[in-house]
Computed example of a mutant assay.
Amino acid sequence: MDQEKKRSKSTGKQVFPKYLFIITIIISILVSGSVGYATSRVVINASDREASEMKLLKEDMMKARTDSIKVIETEVPKIMSDLEKYNQDIILINENISWLDKNLAPITAATDQFDTAISFIVNANSLVKIPVVDKVSSELSFAQVQLEDINGMLIHLEDLSLIQKEISYSHQKVELLYAEYEKDKSVDQLLLIQEELDSNLIYQIEDLRTLTPEAYEVFEVSSNVLLTIEQIKSMYNSIEETGKNALKTIQFWKENEEDPEIGSDIKEDLKEDFKTSKEDLQNLPDELTQRSKETINSINLVQQELQTLKMTQMVIGE
Rank of each mutant, 00 (worst) to 15 (best):
K55T: 15
S186W: 09
K165A: 15
K254N: 13
D115F: 04
V35A: 14
I93Q: 02
Q3D: 11
G12H: 03
K254V: 08
V132T: 14
N283D: 13
E95I: 06
V315S: 01
A64Y: 02
T276G: 03
T39W: 11
Y37A: 09
I202Q: 06
T11A: 12
P106E: 00
F252L: 07
P260L: 05
M235A: 11
L281H: 03
I130N: 00
Q3Y: 12
S170V: 12
E180L: 08
I25A: 10
Y181K: 01
Y19S: 01
Q204T: 09
V133H: 00
K165S: 14
T74D: 14
S137I: 03
A110H: 01
S28K: 05
K278N: 10
V218F: 00
D149L: 07
R41L: 15
N300F: 08
V76I: 09
V132W: 02
G263M: 04
S98V: 11
D89E: 13
T212P: 02
Q304M: 10
E95V: 07
I69M: 02
E294I: 07
K183V: 13
I262F: 03
E95K: 10
L147V: 11
K244M: 13
F16V: 15
V302I: 06
D259Y: 04
E230V: 08
F120I: 01
L57D: 00
S222K: 06
F120P: 01
M62Q: 14
A105H: 05
M153A: 12
E220I: 14
L157N: 00
D269R: 05
S32Q: 08
P77E: 07
Y169T: 13
T276Y: 09
